[in-house]
């Protein structure tokens, strides 16, 4: 297994784990799969694109602003559409996120059209190739994405475990009524979960847009990453990270040694395998599988 393959797997895994963490955070808070996660990924990239009008040289600020904006959007989505649906069956809430995804995609296409954009070009920045030892090569954006993934996910895990608010978020996710009896504003905690999830997806979106291209259907990358939290455990961030390496490796191996078209389906085979053998994933809680 050569170094280039390893590098590709790590990069893809970083991407998957960012999006996957988004799914996990939302699932813990609202017990649903946020199928609009891909659209949040796409939106963040478009926010960055819109902010490029500020001119070059301010890239860090633009990145920060784009992430803040998408976090706010996610918080608003939670408040306006998910919070009123407390108590409804999971199926309905998931379908609601699908409806939101469609609206977000349509609005983005309306505003920015389906034309492919290249934000880095607009900013005049070139995506140089970094040559790593043992003959591997990754782009600057890819390396940045891996670093960002490590920082973000590590930060989220630490935050949830150590910070007071993090503990309150975990408590609200486990038992909302009890948490509110203890004075926690659970809806604020949930909105925060959604915002953090959006930031994770947003980082992935920015990386993809900078590295490949920006167009509305990059939102589909979000669905592609769905296998990761399902395999890793919908309640475990650590499980998602492990699963992302697993899925990334399987995909890359399939592309290299089997049919390239297979890469798209490999995640779904993994999902099926886990559903049959271990539905709650590698590190997920063995929950009483909720009925619809």
């Amino acid at each position: 297994m050569d170094a280039q393959l390893v590098a590709q797997v790590v990069v893809l895994a970083a991407f998957y784990s960012l999006v996957g963490t988004g799914y996990v955070l939302v699932y813990r808070a609202s017990r649903v799969l946020n199928l609009a996660n891909g659209e949040l990924l796409m939106l963040c990239a478009y926010f960055l694109f819109a902010l490029t009008v500020l001119g070059r040289g301010l890239l860090p600020l633009m990145v920060l602003l784009a992430l803040v904006l998408v976090a706010v959007v996610a918080g608003v989505i939670y408040w306006a559409t998910i919070r009123p649906m407390t108590g409804h069956p999971v199926f309905s809430i998931v379908l609601m996120t699908v409806g939101l995804a469609i609206v977000l995609r349509g609005v983005s296409e309306l505003v920015w059209t389906a034309q492919a954009r290249y934000p880095l070009e607009v900013l005049g920045i070139t995506n140089k190739t970094l040559h790593l030892p043992a003959g591997a090569a990754v782009t600057v954006v890819e390396a940045g994405a891996v670093a960002a993934a490590v920082l973000f996910i590590g930060g989220v895990i630490a935050f949830l475990r150590l910070a007071r608010i993090g503990m309150q978020m975990r408590a609200s996710a486990e038992h909302p009524v009890l948490a509110s009896q203890r004075g926690v504003n659970i809806h604020l905690a949930f909105a925060l979960s959604w915002a953090l999830a959006a930031i994770g997806a947003g980082i992935a979106g920015l990386a993809f847009a900078a590295n490949v291209r920006l167009e509305p259907n990059i939102a589909e990358q979000g669905l592609r990453a769905l296998a990761v939290p399902l395999a890793g455990g919908l309640t475990s961030i650590l499980g998602t990270v492990i699963a992302s390496l697993m899925v990334a490796m399987s995909e890359n191996l399939a592309v290299r040694y089997a049919d390239p078209l297979l890469a798209g389906v490999v995640p779904y085979f993994i999902i099926l395998a886990f559903i049959i053998l271990r539905p709650w994933g590698l590190l997920g809680e063995e929950e009483e599988l909720e009925r619809v």
Partner: peptide, 21 residues
């Protein structure tokens, strides 16, 4: 077949996977 083992979200996802296949 998955419905004999799982329900809800997991069942939905397994049917999605089969659709993809």
């Amino acid at each position: 077949l998955p419905s004999l083992r799982v329900k809800g979200l997991y069942l939905a996802v397994s049917t999605l996977a089969l659709h993809a296949v």
